[in-house]
Amino acid sequence: MAAPLRAGVLGLGVMGRNHARVLSTLDGVDFIGVFDPAENVPPTVHDRPVFHDLDDFLRAGVDYVVVAAPTVYHLDMGTRLAEAGVHALIEKPVASTAEDARTLRDLFASRGLIGGVGHIERYNPALQAARQKIEDGLIGDIYQVTTRRQGPFPGRIADVGVIKDLATHDIDLTAWVTQQQFVDVNARTTHRSGRPHEDMVLAVGTLSGGAITSHTVNWLTPFKERVTIITGAKGALVADTLTADLTHFENGTVRSEWEQATSFRGVTEGDMTRFALERKEPLRAEHEAFRDSVIAGEPRGIVTLDEGTRVVEIAESMAADGVAHRR
């Protein structure tokens, strides 16, 4: 039996603590600890040490690391890991800028290392099932994808705006679930909370297969919503990633004798089905995929650095277009 992989975490914020929790119980992995330079962090996490010096952390010996530090540090930390020959799962967005993301992508590729990005929505049971239903032809050709991701302001975010923090989820999941790439995007942004970064965005896009998209994302709504609606030729799928529910709305096939109604040539309401799904924690599924990729020496079900870089490129286009239309 192969020895377990040695893995650790960089950064002990909210996501870092969650990554540490999963790694401490993940089969085939020996959790070695966390690096965080802050003075107010505990000395241990899940009975493993918290290192305050990155060199000491690396000398402890790691096969792969989760980078859960603020985005502004991703380039430096990712570079250190690649130079040390360490595989890395980097929280989204992969870097602060598309240029930095491309640098990390190329660096990991040149070293033959596995690099992944923590776009966790891909592992939500509702979206996993939606992707499979689309592949099975349940709703036919995709016409439109609409996402709504809104809620109160998260105090933990200080270095990026709502586009790179939240809209990147929608950029990635839309391209992944449809298996189409964004070919253009237009956006409107606004700043309402007195911060230097945008806190609301409305965006529309076009995908490579002809589908159109719309995305409502903000930090200024007093309720939390995470909904993806995928409309196709034969019906629609509605995924709620807060509850991990997936509902199918079928185009109607019942004939109507009412002349006024039959003059309308669009679709009608058909059967509605809410699927019973196996619900695995998305973060654990993400870790299992990355662990398996490191073992295999090739990406297996992860968000690659190339895909993560493309997300940042689209996000930058979205932000730039939003700024242009505010002038």
Rank of each mutant, 00 (worst) to 15 (best):
L207D: 08
G209A: 00
G210V: 05
D245L: 08
H197K: 07
E198D: 15
F249R: 01
T268L: 09
R291E: 00
S263E: 14
F223Q: 12
G209Y: 01
T228H: 06
P222N: 10
G266C: 09
V227S: 07
A233N: 06
G194F: 01
R255W: 08
A211V: 05
F275T: 06
V201R: 01
V201F: 07
E288P: 04
L242W: 12
H215D: 07
V254H: 13
E257C: 11
L283N: 00
D240A: 01
S208P: 03
I230C: 02
R192K: 14
A261V: 13
V267D: 06
F290N: 05
R192F: 12
G270L: 06
W258G: 12
F290A: 00
R284W: 09
S256Q: 03
E225H: 13
K234W: 12
E259S: 14
A236G: 05
A233T: 10
P222K: 09
E269Y: 11
E198L: 08
A289V: 03
D240L: 02
F290D: 02
F290K: 01
V227I: 14
R284A: 10
D271V: 15
E257G: 13
S193A: 15
N218Y: 05
G235A: 02
T206N: 12
T273A: 11
S263L: 15
T268P: 11
T206V: 14
R195Y: 12
A285F: 06
